[in-house]
Nucleic acid binder design. Structure first.
Lengths: 191, 191
DNA sequence: TATTGAGTTGAATGATCAATCAAATTATTT
DNA sequence: AAATAATTTGATTGATCATTCAACTCAATA
């Protein structure tokens, strides 16, 4: 499935993904998506019945891109599972610095903005989180399965550090909270 | 300052606070605020020049309420500084369970939804986070200042666990990720 | 080449958005 | 009681919202 996608559809999803990430879902108007994608409204609604359906496509593209875009590169760069976790954290760190602290986790942003939601969107956000969980849990298992460690709990804590550290740095517009939280997390893993 | 506030103004701020929390800022229309507050638009705009100004008032009310509504009760209930932290976490836990996992941190929600923002709103969100930081840092200092601990880093990690654990439980619609993350955090504090 | 259907055009729709304002009312001060 | 100020009324505004649709183009197939 999802082989050699239509180019107009792709353009729409990628434009929407960028705008939803930068501005949020509600703050992004269809007119802006259409203008930046260089597409007419009829074309968009030929592929997507609604704005919400477009958001669902964006969330599916995040889900599909998680492996090839994030997990795989990190696994290629680092052999040690623990280093892989910090490699992922460093990706966030770089994104924060490069965007002057405007970068946020796309899934985390949508999760909190769409918190009220209860339909396909909520399910897709949960699916995305679950995929992240699985990747991190796999690494932690590889590193600590022999020892007496609660892998599931450590995974939850790891995700919490990622999202929470990112949020703090973004709000404070400085990298220190992120670095400090990660340093503490690293120390904890060491013991 | 802020002595014996006008009742109409209060009603508006409290209604807006509830709606912004439940639905988010952009998803909440002024018409809904007006209807639920039982107030006419002219009255609202007599007190607040814009929707954004109303959000600023809401954020100021969060800032003012942090001590009396959250910190003080927890400090009254628990003497031990570490227990106070877990008392605060338990407040979140109860809120999650009572709302069927729809409860989110009001400040965290707004922080991620308004991430693009760069004006007074962003400053007020940062002020709120700073106030939370100060409270937690005070407790951690009382507990660990003697020992060789990075209090600032531990504070950042604590906040990250709060926000990150809440986010995960909300998305997964189950308490386990929250409990697991907190359990790991507790174990870490013990060592 | 005729037919079919996927894709595109872009103006138009009604709903909802935040915000306005002159007039009326109520509260405060003189 | 008169004058002034603060607050409230609520219809109305223009902008923007997501969405629709009939007409059109173009590529694939028969």
């Amino acid at each position: 499935m999802t082989k050699a996608e239509n180019t107009t559809r792709q353009k729409i999803v990628e434009t929407a993904r960028a705008l939803f990430h930068e501005q949020g879902y509600h703050a992004t108007g269809m007119a802006t998506i259409l203008r930046l994608a260089g597409v007419n409204s009829g074309s968009l609604y030929h592929f997507f019945p609604s704005k919400e359906a477009l958001l669902e496509a964006v969330l599916e593209s995040y889900l599909g891109g998680l492996g090839p875009m994030l997990i795989d590169p990190v696994e290629a760069a680092f052999g040690d599972p623990v280093e892989r976790i910090f490699g992922l954290l460093d990706q966030y760190r770089q994104a924060l610095l490069m965007t002057d602290f405007s970068y946020g986790c796309p899934i985390g942003n949508l999760a909190l903005e769409m918190g009220a939601d209860d339909g396909d969107v909520a399910r897709l956000i949960a699916d995305n989180f679950a995929a992240w969980r699985d990747a991190i849990e796999g690494w932690l298992s590889a590193a600590f399965s022999a020892k007496d460690v609660d892998i599931s709990g450590l995974t939850a804590l790891t995700l919490a550090v990622m999202e929470g550290a990112l949020m703090q740095a973004r709000v404070a517009k400085k990298i220190e909270p992120f670095d400090e939280a990660v340093a503490q997390y690293r120390k904890m893993l060491g013991t």
